[in-house]
Simulated scan of single mutants.
Amino acid sequence: MEYGDKLFWLSVLIQRKYAQICAEFDLTPSQATLLCAVRNEPRQMAYLAASLGMTKNALSQLVDRTARRELVGRESSAQDRRVVMLSATPTGKVLGEAIYAEVSKRLPEIARNLDPDDQRDFERVATAVVDTSDLSPTTSDQPITQ
């Protein structure tokens, strides 16, 4: 199996474990990711769309579904009323924190069959990949108007 194939299957393992955790909270992976992204502070919808690699329309639909569960809310920015901010409701914040904690605790289980030295190497390499990656939005942070 080629290196690219192994990375593909690693992403499948991570996504499968993440989906299992999300299902335990009765959330889709997209809803859980959204909650985790806004659990600490409100974010601009345009920023979220770009950061999560979604179209503004897809994000808006996701927000609608999540808002119906009273987990997130939209509001206009005080500085620019065209800018829509998304924040977690009190219930959404608690749920987002719980999901984030559970993912942080259980996602490393994908490396449980490695010996301790390999587990440390895996953690070191994963950390280096994330630390040297540009996780900022790939498009400009333009306001989204609704």
Results as ranks from 00 to 15, higher is better:
Met1Cys: 06
Met1Val: 08
Gly4Pro: 11
Lys6Glu: 12
Lys6Asn: 08
Leu7His: 07
Phe8Leu: 15
Val12Leu: 03
Val12Ile: 09
Ile14Tyr: 05
Ile14Glu: 15
Ile14Thr: 09
Tyr18Cys: 03
Gln20Asp: 12
Cys22His: 04
Leu27His: 02
Leu27Val: 02
Leu27Met: 05
Pro29Leu: 05
Ala32Glu: 02
Ala32Asn: 01
Ala32Val: 02
Ala37Pro: 01
Ala37His: 09
Asn40Glu: 13
Asn40Gly: 13
Asn40Pro: 02
Glu41Phe: 12
Glu41Gln: 13
Pro42Gln: 08
Pro42Phe: 04
Ala46Thr: 03
Ala49Glu: 00
Ala49Asp: 00
Gly53His: 03
Met54Cys: 03
Lys56Val: 09
Ala58Tyr: 09
Leu62Ser: 01
Val63Arg: 01
Asp64Thr: 10
Asp64Cys: 14
Arg65Phe: 00
Thr66Val: 03
Arg69Asp: 11
Arg69Gly: 03
Glu70Cys: 06
Leu71His: 06
Ala78Thr: 15
Ala78Glu: 13
Gln79Lys: 15
Arg81Val: 15
Arg82Pro: 01
Val83Tyr: 01
Val83Ala: 11
Val83His: 06
Val84Ile: 09
Met85Leu: 08
Leu86Gln: 00
Ser87Cys: 08
Ala88Gln: 00
Ala88Asp: 00
Pro90Arg: 01
Lys93Asp: 07
Val94Ala: 13
Glu97Phe: 10
Ala98Phe: 06
Ile99Tyr: 04
Ala101Tyr: 09
Ala101Met: 12
Glu102Gly: 07
Glu102Thr: 09
Ser104Lys: 12
Lys105Ser: 15
Arg106Lys: 10
Glu109Ser: 13
Ile110Thr: 06
Ala111Asn: 07
Ala111Ile: 07
Asp118Leu: 11
Arg120Gln: 12
Arg120Asn: 10
Phe122Ala: 05
Phe122Lys: 08
Phe122Val: 06
Glu123Arg: 14
Glu123Cys: 12
Val125His: 06
Ala126Gln: 07
Ala126Gly: 11
Ala126Glu: 08
Ala126Phe: 10
Thr127Gly: 10
Thr127Arg: 10
Ala128Asn: 06
Ala128His: 07
Val129Gly: 07
Val129Thr: 06
Leu135Pro: 00
Pro137Lys: 02
Pro137Phe: 03
Ser140Trp: 15
Gln142Ser: 12
Thr145Met: 05
Thr145Lys: 07
Gln146Met: 14
